[in-house]
């Protein structure tokens, strides 16, 4: 089945064409990194108005790149939530209108469901597996027993991991995207230079808290007698990254062990982080686990990832009708097949 996928839940406007829920024919994202860079580290909202401007452009580009005519599309998958209603509605209204016009079935998909199923477009993990979804807005651990079968095991109680990265980058006067810059600088610094806290590491549950690490970096920077020069920033980046990576990997491995899971999917924008990838790969090898990372284009927000669940639901005959609405707050556990 040839599916057109549309995503507009947060900053990115994106469209993709996916065949049979496994083969990505195109994946177009109206990336705003240049716009962000103009604002010197403060990330502006790509608001619903900008989604309106971008959506028909990205859909057209996705079809062209896939070399697929609009008439060949057999189904449409769209992000229904969670996110800002205004932003979601741009994708949702477009998808509804196109499905009606083309007389093809439509299905609404959970944004995070797309992220944690993204590896199926490359190297499919077998169910069940543990999923760690880490991005600017999410830091969640899920047990995944199949498409549409998710259980939350843990989540952040304050800041998301990607948010902590971006805010620490801002504290250090680095630019945007902060996470990628810290990751690069961390490779040049000493991860043991500063002992930043590892919040909630020793608690038996699988929840995270990253706000305290950010505050510890802020206090360190203000108190430090050593000048905040290039080497020092590299040391702070490396030490901060060591703390983040230790918390994320330790909790994920502990959750996998508790649930008896042998495979781990790490998804979302922070899954691009090289320090996190390295540590996960080392630990997985040591514990006999298999770990899956989507390639960078499928880590950040994109539309192709929606093709995996969309194809599954449409094949099952689970179609949405014209009344389908955006859902701003939508726990993944409540997605049902």
């Amino acid at each position: 089945m040839l599916i057109l996928c549309i995503e507009s839940s947060c900053d990115e406007t994106a469209a993709a064409v996916v065949r049979d829920g496994r083969e990505m024919l195109s994946n177009v994202v109206a990336s705003q990194v240049d716009v962000h860079a103009r604002y010197g580290g403060v990330v502006p909202e790509l608001a619903s108005r900008k989604h309106v401007e971008a959506i028909s452009v990205v859909i057209k580009a996705a079809l062209e790149e896939a070399d697929v005519a609009l008439e060949q599309i057999e189904g449409i998958g769209v992000t229904r939530g969670p996110g800002l209603v205004g932003a979601l509605l741009v994708g949702l209204s477009t998808a509804k209108a196109m499905a009606w016009g083309l007389e093809v079935p439509l299905v609404g998909v959970h944004h995070i469901e797309g992220h944690i199923l993204a590896p199926f477009l490359e190297r499919a993990p077998a169910f069940p597996f543990l999923a760690l979804a880490v991005s600017g807005g999410h830091s969640h651990l899920y047990r995944v027993d199949g498409i549409g079968q998710y259980r939350t095991l843990g989540r952040t109680l304050d800041d998301a991991a990607g948010e902590a990265y971006d805010k620490v980058a801002k504290l250090l006067g680095l630019g945007y995207p902060g996470g990628a810059l810290i990751d690069r600088l961390a490779g040049q610094g000493d991860p043991k230079a500063i002992n930043f806290p590892r919040p909630m590491l020793h608690r038996p549950d699988f929840d995270f808290s990253f706000s305290g690490i950010k505050t510890a970096v802020m206090q360190y920077v203000h108190k430090s007698s050593r000048p905040i020069d290039e080497t020092h920033i590299a040391d702070i980046s490396a030490s901060f990254q060591a703390s983040m990576v230790e918390v994320l990997t330790t909790k994920a491995l502990r959750a996998a062990a508790a649930e008896g899971l042998e495979r781990i999917v790490v998804a979302g924008g922070v899954a691009c982080n090289s320090g996190l990838r390295r540590q996960f790969s080392q630990l997985a090898a040591k514990h006999g686990l298999e770990v899956f990372f989507p390639s960078p284009a499928l880590c950040g927000d994109n539309a192709a990832m929606l093709g995996v669940p969309a194809d599954y639901y449409l094949q099952k005959g689970l179609h949405a009708d014209g009344k389908m609405n955006a859902v701003s707050s939508w726990p993944l556990d409540t997605v049902t097949v």
């Binding site: 800002l84 952040t156 948010e163 929840d207």
Partner: peptide, 12 residues
């Protein structure tokens, strides 16, 4: 959990 809305912009 009352988490930071920095990325989501609004939590209800």
């Amino acid at each position: 959990p009352v988490t930071s809305p920095s990325y989501t912009l609004l939590n209800v």
